[in-house]
Amino acid sequence: MRKGSVKEVLAKLKYDPREDEEDYYVIIEHRGAYGDVKKIPVGMIDLGHGYFFVGDAQIPYHRILKVVRKDGKVIWETRKL
């Protein structure tokens, strides 16, 4: 399940022509609200160096808890869970 960093996994989903980024989403922990999570489609994400962007929002990669396929299969999960 966990192969490489979350940034590497997201880059593969976004740029590998064999993958469809619309089939995946990330689950992040919302800042300042322990236990409050948000689900963001990978297609809405722009990758940066230490952060990813959703529109004007800049979110650090360490907030990502999981990368999940639409069918519910977890393809990457943080070790801190």
Rank of each mutant, 00 (worst) to 15 (best):
E29W: 04
E29P: 04
E29G: 09
E29K: 09
H30A: 11
H30C: 00
H30M: 06
H30Y: 11
R31Q: 10
G32F: 04
G32K: 04
G32M: 02
G32C: 03
G32A: 04
G32R: 10
G32D: 04
A33E: 13
A33Q: 13
A33R: 15
A33N: 09
A33L: 11
A33I: 03
A33Y: 10
Y34A: 13
G35S: 02
G35W: 06
G35V: 03
G35P: 08
D36I: 02
D36M: 08
D36W: 11
D36E: 13
V37Y: 14
V37A: 06
V37D: 10
V37S: 13
V37T: 15
V37F: 13
K38A: 03
K38L: 11
K38V: 00
K38G: 00
K38R: 15
K39E: 12
K39I: 04
K39L: 05
K39T: 12
K39P: 02
I40M: 04
I40T: 05
P41E: 11
P41F: 08
P41A: 12
P41G: 12
V42L: 05
V42W: 08
G43E: 12
G43S: 15
G43W: 08
M44K: 15
M44L: 12
M44F: 11
I45E: 03
I45M: 12
I45N: 08
D46K: 15
D46Y: 07
D46T: 14
D46V: 13
D46R: 15
D46I: 06
L47N: 02
L47Q: 03
L47C: 05
L47E: 04
G48T: 04
G48W: 01
H49G: 08
H49E: 15
H49S: 14
G50H: 11
G50F: 07
Y51H: 14
Y51N: 14
Y51S: 05
F52Q: 03
F52W: 01
F52N: 02
F53A: 02
F53C: 01
F53I: 02
F53P: 01
V54W: 06
V54I: 10
V54G: 06
G55N: 03
G55K: 01
G55H: 02
G55V: 01
D56V: 07
D56T: 10
A57L: 11
A57M: 08
A57D: 12
A57G: 00
A57T: 07
Q58Y: 01
Q58M: 13
Q58R: 15
P60I: 04
P60Y: 05
P60L: 07
P60T: 06
Y61L: 05
Y61S: 06
Y61A: 05
H62R: 13
H62E: 14
R63Q: 09
R63H: 01
R63V: 01
R63I: 00
R63T: 09
I64Y: 09
L65N: 10
L65P: 04
L65V: 10
K66Q: 14
K66E: 14
K66I: 00
K66N: 10
K66M: 09
K66C: 05
V67P: 12
V67N: 11
V67K: 12
V68T: 12
V68F: 00
V68E: 11
V68G: 09
R69K: 15
